[in-house]
Amino acid sequence: MSTVFIALQANEETRPIIDAIELDNPRAVVHRQPAMVKIDAPDELVIRKQTIEEQLGRAFDLQELQINLITLSGNVDEDDETLTLRWNS
């Protein structure tokens, strides 16, 4: 098992995004640190546009994540609907 993670700034824009990530990734562990939130997950983490929109109550372009992203790990794959982080091991 390898851990993938994503870290986002802790602010009003990311609060619903973090909620959405927790909903879509039941095995994820959320670490709240000063000014940032780091989310770890075993092997894979999936971020879905639709869940974020439900939490946010507005349309959301997954590329908006770029603004509040701090760091991530794992192989990235992004299309219109999902952003996936994955280790192949």
Binding site: Q66, L69, T71, L72, S73
Partner: peptide
């Protein structure tokens, strides 16, 4: 750092 995820 918001650019670094892309750089990584």
């Amino acid at each position: 750092q918001s650019d670094e995820a892309r750089h990584m």
